[in-house]
């Protein structure tokens, strides 16, 4: 069960669905529901995930994992605690928007906290250019990340079909956003300038993926 249907929640839901998991994503903002329902079907549910009764109706008691990925750390902490304490969910993961909050999350046993901002800070620290490449989410303390790459016209892969592109081992292209369309990639998919690529990769593969896609 995923609470928060923004960018991170949406991509995470898609990936987990593709891996064959039964996913429910709860989003509070009615304005985001249309897109979520179109892409995720019945998995998308409208409601305030910080309310216990909403979580219960969504099937929280049966969930193996509850992931809270809203943009508000306090809300993410509250959701994880409702899931763990009221509904006995064994594994709760909360997105940390501010690394300063890491200590209290750990003190409350919120497992596997993910912090995209920490990863970005880490990248900047290692002097890796992040202009066209953004980390959306990381797991396992940053070993595995979901990244977003905006494809400039100058990219070596622009205009090529996927079967002609060599992606480094350890990187998986999850989807291609072409305008408003979400494309599930096949070998025949042709990448175009201004496409946005969503990829899952290990931390160690990130630089190689960058070189393969952007040539820098």
């Amino acid at each position: 069960m995923i609470v928060g249907g923004g960018k991170v929640g949406f991509h995470l839901s898609r990936i987990l669905q593709q891996q064959g998991h039964e996913v429910t994503v709860i989003e509070k903002d009615p304005g985001k529901m249309e897109a979520l329902e179109r892409e995720l079907g019945e998995a998308a549910m409208h409601g305030d995930g910080a309310r216990p009764s909403v979580l219960e109706t969504a099937g929280c008691r049966r969930a193996d994992v509850v992931v809270a990925v809203t943009g508000d750390d306090a809300v993410n902490l509250l959701i994880s605690q409702i899931a763990a304490k009221m509904f006995g969910v064994q594994r709760t993961i909360a997105r940390l928007n501010s690394p300063r909050n890491r200590r209290i999350f750990a003190a409350l046993g919120v497992e596997g906290t993910v912090s995209s901002t920490a990863i970005i800070a880490d990248l900047i620290g290692r002097e890796v250019a992040t202009r066209e490449l953004h980390t959306l989410l990381s797991f396992k303390s940053g070993e595995i990340t979901i990244i977003e790459i905006d494809l400039p016209a100058s990219a070596p892969v622009a205009g090529k079909s996927l079967r002609d592109i060599h992606f480094p081992e350890g990187a998986l292209l999850v989807s291609v956003l072409h305008g408003d369309d979400v494309i599930l990639p096949t070998g025949a998919t042709v990448l175009e300038a201004d496409d946005r690529l969503i990829a899952l990769c290990s931390h160690a593969t990130e630089a190689a993926l960058r070189t393969a896609v952007l040539g820098t």
């Binding site: 309310r51 009764s53 306090a74 809300v75 902490l77 605690q81 909050n101 200590r103 209290i104 409350l108």
Partner: peptide, 30 residues
Amino acid sequence: DDATNFMVGEVARHLFGIRRIGVRINEPEL
């Protein structure tokens, strides 16, 4: 904000060991 109040309360309790903590909630289910 209920979530903020809860988090403030948890920080006070777990990181400072404060025992008397009042937390305002607007959602009775909590």
